[in-house]
């Protein structure tokens, strides 16, 4: 295995594009090192992108926030600006593993690891986040939900890597939230995760919503029908019941060591309702 820590995006892209065998990007490394040490992967090349300028930065851009691919979730949690704009995303990032893991784990890495159970991804999807991809053909921006294509698989092309995540400026009277279910209080992989972002008009009617589910399908889902259940309502009990039903209906989970199909399907609806209540209260300020 070769370890490289390039100083520029172009060098990183060139290294990744020219690698003879398998090449992996190292950001926080909290997933990569586990797979490396267990022998599940035997990379020819590991490219540490954290020494590239900007990778460790959180920058305000058009009222939103651009978060470098090397920013650990602990730093995100300490950033008042991002926390104020997208508390649900920050909370989701703050749920990834332990305090120690949060000292290293990144949003970009959580996304590119392409686990359907990744905590920050449903929250980013609900927030309408985009990923900026650097590659041999230059850069392109892609909706976060379009990056993972299945467990461990992404739509990134050879030589490409995610350089930053962009969280747009939230509309007035907006709120977001992320909840997950785990057996313990910490340290588990989500059995179900749910992100909700919604916007109210001045009268308190929901005018826009995005609802996302994790760990209930092969990839994180953006559930349009669940969002539609909220839009045009005051997010009252009837709307929340419809949201809950739509979320359960959208699930196509598996039985595994972390949960059953029935449990995941049921809990998806429970969490969606609870997350929507938090998002609503945040939208109301």
């Amino acid at each position: 295995m070769r370890y490289e820590a390039p100083q520029s995006v172009d060098t990183a892209v060139a290294l990744l594009a020219e690698a003879a065998g398998s090449a992996h990007v190292l950001a926080g490394g909290t997933d990569l090192l586990v797979r490396l040490r267990s022998g599940h992967i035997e990379p020819e090349l590991v490219v540490d992108i954290k020494r590239i300028e900007g990778m460790r930065a959180i920058v305000e851009e058009d009222g939103g926030w651009r978060i470098g691919a090397g920013v650990p979730s602990a730093e995100l949690g300490e950033h008042a600006g991002v926390r104020g704009a997208w508390p649900g995303v920050v909370e989701a990032a703050g749920l990834i593993g332990s305090t120690q893991i949060q000292g290293r784990a990144t949003l970009a890495g959580n996304l590119c690891n392409a686990s359907p159970a990744a905590d920050s991804v449903p929250a980013m999807v609900a927030a309408g986040a985009t990923a900026r991809i650097a590659g041999p053909g230059g850069t392109r921006d892609v909706a976060v939900e379009d990056i993972p294509t299945g467990p461990g698989r992404t739509s990134l092309r050879p030589g490409e890597f995610v350089a930053s995540i962009y969280l747009p400026a939230p509309a007035p009277r907006s709120g977001d939230a992320y909840l997950r279910f785990i057996p313990r209080t910490e340290m588990d992989i989500a059995v179900v995760g749910c992100g909700v972002a919604l916007t109210l008009d001045e009268g308190g009617t929901c005018i826009a919503a995005r609802v996302s589910l994790g760990a209930v399908a092969a990839k994180v889902l953006l559930v349009g029908k669940a969002a539609a259940a909220l839009v045009g309502t005051a997010v009252d009990d009837t709307a929340l019941a419809a949201l809950s039903a739509a979320c359960s209906e959208a699930c196509s989970p598996i039985d595994d060591k972390r949960g059953t199909v029935a449990f995941r399907t049921h809990v998806a609806g429970v969490l969606a309702e609870r997350a929507a209540r938090i998002a609503l209260s945040r939208a109301k300020g």
Partner: peptide, 29 residues
């Protein structure tokens, strides 16, 4: 554990708490 699940290898890097089992030695430069 070697997987970041037990914390027995905790150290700080630039004052940030991390698991030293989940960081390459080369990254310490």
């Amino acid at each position: 554990c070697g997987t970041g699940d037990c914390g027995a290898c905790s150290v700080t890097v630039d004052d940030r708490l991390v698991c030293s089992c989940l960081m390459l030695g080369a990254e310490a430069e």
